[in-house]
Simulated assay, not measured.
Amino acid sequence: MDYENDLPDLSHWKAVMEFTVEQAALLMAMIDPLDVETLAQAKEQQFPRWKKAHAHCLSIVSAIRQGMISPVICCAWVLPENYSEQPYAMNIKPSDRTYDISPAHTVISRAALLNWIETERVQVTKPASPAKLTQLDQKQAEIIEATPLALPYRGHTSEGLEFVEDAIKQLWSTYDPDDPSTAPSQTEVVEYLKGRGAGANMAQAVNLILRPRHLSPGNRKNRSAATNKS
Rank of each mutant, 00 (worst) to 15 (best):
M1A: 11
M1C: 09
D2Q: 09
Y3D: 13
N5T: 11
D6C: 05
L7C: 11
L10F: 10
L10V: 10
S11M: 09
W13D: 03
W13E: 04
A15P: 02
T20N: 09
E22N: 08
L26Y: 07
L26H: 13
L27A: 10
A29C: 08
M30C: 15
I31C: 05
L34E: 11
L34V: 09
D35Q: 08
D35K: 07
E37L: 08
Q41M: 10
A42L: 06
Q45K: 15
Q45Y: 15
F47K: 14
P48Y: 12
K51H: 09
K52F: 14
K52Q: 12
A53T: 02
A53H: 09
A55I: 14
H56L: 03
H56C: 07
C57F: 04
C57S: 13
L58A: 15
I60K: 07
S62M: 02
A63W: 01
Q66V: 04
Q66H: 14
G67N: 03
M68G: 01
I69V: 06
S70N: 12
C74Y: 04
Y83K: 12
E85L: 14
Q86G: 06
A89F: 06
M90S: 07
I92S: 08
I92Q: 06
S95R: 13
S95L: 08
R97K: 15
T98S: 13
T98N: 12
Y99Q: 09
P103I: 04
A104Q: 15
T106I: 05
T106V: 07
I108E: 03
S109T: 14
S109C: 03
R110W: 07
A111N: 01
L113G: 07
L114G: 06
L114Q: 05
N115A: 02
V122Y: 07
V122K: 12
S129K: 13
S129P: 06
P130R: 04
L133F: 12
Q135V: 15
Q135T: 14
Q140C: 05
I143Q: 02
I144C: 11
A146R: 14
L149C: 01
A150K: 01
A150V: 00
P152T: 00
Y153T: 00
R154A: 00
G155S: 02
G155V: 00
E159W: 04
E162I: 01
F163S: 05
F163A: 06
F163P: 02
F163E: 01
E165G: 03
E165R: 01
E165L: 00
E165F: 00
A167P: 03
A167V: 05
I168L: 02
I168W: 01
Q170Y: 02
Y175N: 01
Y175W: 06
D176S: 05
D178S: 10
P180C: 06
S181R: 11
S181W: 01
S181C: 07
T182D: 03
P184W: 00
Q186V: 10
K194G: 05
G195H: 09
R196N: 10
G197I: 07
A198G: 11
A200D: 05
N201L: 13
N201P: 04
M202F: 08
Q204N: 10
A205I: 02
A205T: 10
A205F: 05
A205N: 06
N207Y: 14
N207E: 06
I209W: 04
L210E: 00
R211F: 03
L215Q: 04
G218H: 06
G218N: 13
N219F: 14
N222G: 06
N222K: 15
R223T: 14
R223N: 13
S224E: 10
T227D: 13
K229C: 10
